[in-house]
């Protein structure tokens, strides 16, 4: 495992019970899916693989995922009633236990999110102790841990390039910590780890650049009070 571990990954997270991987980790996957999708979905279909599917109700995995999709953090006591909140906000959801492949982590979930004629498929897994990783976005393999703030940009590589993107970000005086790209067919997904906060306006600007399909700012999960 090449991940770094903070002592508060071990003595933490602060969370609503009963299970760190099936409740807190599931909730984090919901939030990250929401960040990537960019808004509360109208309809979301959630496929649960392996152990996730087997013990969903006992661990309130369903409530935790729904809570996450609505933007609740794992320590939010309202997770217990997230089903009611979903109704209020008009988010329809459905769950299904499904085998997503033998090479998948036993706690894997696949979201199919829909709103405004837009559909996105996001896969992630809860790897224990409340940690979660997003592994795939629209068939493009990724590795998002939520440990850092990052800017995700998906673009068509026939008429846009990473250089153009980086130049644009540099003009805003934003410090880039790390850049990872994955190419799938004619599309590139750039995961740009940053130190500062990205203003919604900057993200909006980037998403309207010619050749960019979408851009999102993913806030990290901080172990320290803000």
């Amino acid at each position: 495992m090449s991940d770094t571990w903070s002592v508060f990954d071990i003595i933490g997270p602060i969370m609503v019970g009963p299970s760190s991987s099936h409740t807190a980790g599931a909730c984090k996957l919901g939030i990250m899916a929401r960040y990537i999708f960019g808004k509360t979905p109208k309809i979301v279909h959630i496929e649960l693989h392996g152990s996730f599917g087997d013990v969903k109700e006992g661990h309130c995995t369903d409530l935790a995922i729904v809570g996450g999709l609505l933007g609740m953090l794992p320590s939010n006591k309202n997770i217990c009633t997230s089903d009611e909140r979903a109704k209020e906000e008009g988010m329809e959801y459905s769950f299904q236990a499904n085998n997503l492949g033998d090479d998948q982590h036993p706690n894997t979930v696949r979201f199919t999110l829909q709103a405004d004629d837009r559909t996105q498929v996001i896969t992630g897994c809860s790897v224990g102790g409340g940690k979660a990783i997003i592994t795939e976005i629209d068939k493009i393999p990724v590795y998002l841990t939520g440990n850092y703030s990052s800017l995700l940009v998906c673009f068509d590589n026939t008429n846009f390039s990473l250089n153009t993107l980086l130049q644009h970000i540099a003009q805003k005086n934003i410090t880039i910590v790390n850049t990872e790209t994955t190419i799938y067919k004619n599309r590139t997904l750039a995961d740009i780890e940053i130190k500062e906060y990205f203003y919604p306006k900057t993200v909006q600007e980037i998403s309207t650049l010619n050749g960019v399909e979408w851009a999102r700012y993913i806030n990290h999960f901080s172990h320290y009070p803000q």
């Binding site: 019970g17 760190s20 102790g129």
Partner: peptide, 13 residues
């Protein structure tokens, strides 16, 4: 078990 707030250390279980 009652969905109260705890600190996972290292897990909730």
């Amino acid at each position: 078990a009652r969905m109260g707030r705890i600190v996972a250390a290292p897990t909730a279980g």
